[in-house]
Design a protein around this nucleic acid. Structure first.
Lengths: 189, 189
DNA sequence: TTCAATTCTTAATCTAGATTAAAAAAAAAT
DNA sequence: ATTTTTTTTTAATCTAGATTAAGAATTGAA
């Protein structure tokens, strides 16, 4: 399990064997059943999770009880409630498993304390966060400027694997439409 | 001018006087007239800009020629096309000045090269990027779950200063509605 | 100042996507 | 295997917000 994470870090900032050992000590393995929560709204997010296998999602629930998906995390992705994790404040997101999922958990205090010992890890997370911000910006622009049909097409080419793994209504939630309307779009091929 | 940036960095990761001197060497001052471009779509973003005075905006232009604002940068904010800046690829955003604006420019190569000499700066940018990602996530959730009227109200409380400085149609563009519809919303108090 | 260019407002009309409801299909659980 | 739960589809109706158009108000340039 930890080997997956080590390889991911090595692909961005190669570590020495000693550093790899330290990383292995930092994280905790956990297996989540389908629909099991990793984090609930109103609590403070203690952990950031690296998905080894399976898929998680983060989402907010609005006033009317509708879910809105912020992020999917398939294998080799990190997921957390960044706001809550960083500011140590309760927040509005839930994180749960779309399928049975194996994760590695890293607490914020562990993460921050390791940055002084292994600056490479601060670089690793700095780069991941830059990439995540670029992706988030891209999503915002898509949302502002493209109609639902095009957003759906883009989603399909961007996440070809997810399309066949997750329920269609989750895709609808992510691209910001109702499942009924997505069904209608798909009917027009 | 540089003093504004130094103070901002010191508020997050305090620097020694020597380090402050190095930072001062890294950046280049520039003044932009109203409507002047800092960066144009299809070019590679060479610089990230720290706004000392005035206000910049980044925006995309869609197929129909409509502008969609991604970010406002008033004093003490950084702005760039993160995707282009980080990946060194041409991208889809324009950055220009809403008013006469003074900025400090930092090139990506300068930025990256300084991280080894002054790890505090890598921390500074890591923290800024984390905050920006948390804010961007929040915006996405707002988009997915709130009607236009509420998004406008939130914008007003979030950016009380901007409301009186920038044209109303820019607010509409940022919250994702037409200026006509914003005008209608405002008419209902 | 005055003139030209933007920006803002109002109002009528239109449409992408929401809502509601019900049945069909698929997936989980027992 | 059967039942229960969840997901997907279809279709009718509705609405938030877009579009179009034109005049009024601001702003900026000369």
């Amino acid at each position: 399990m930890v080997q997956n994470l080590i390889e991911h870090i090595n692909s961005i900032t190669p570590l020495t064997e000693e550093e790899e050992g330290i990383v292995a000590e930092l994280v905790r393995e956990k297996t989540l059943a389908r629909k099991q929560f990793l984090h609930r709204a109103r609590e403070v997010a203690q952990y950031s999770a690296f998905v080894v296998e399976g898929c998680l999602r983060s989402y907010a629930v609005d006033r009317n009880g509708f879910e809105h998906i912020l992020q999917f995390a398939p294998a080799n992705w990190w997921i957390s409630d960044m706001y809550s994790f960083v500011k140590n404040k309760p927040s509005e997101l839930n994180i749960d498993a779309l399928l049975e999922t194996k994760v590695l958990l890293l607490s914020r205090s562990c993460q921050v304390s390791i940055f002084d010992r292994i600056p490479k890890l601060e670089r690793y997370f700095r780069i991941l966060t830059e990439n995540a911000l670029a992706a988030s910006n891209h999503r915002t622009i898509n949302y502002l400027s493209l109609p639902a049909k095009v957003r759906y097409e883009k989603f399909c080419t961007m996440y070809p694997t997810l399309i066949n793994t997750i329920p269609q209504k989750s895709v609808a939630s992510y691209i910001g439409i109702t499942p009924e309307f997505l069904s209608k779009l798909r009917a027009e091929f």
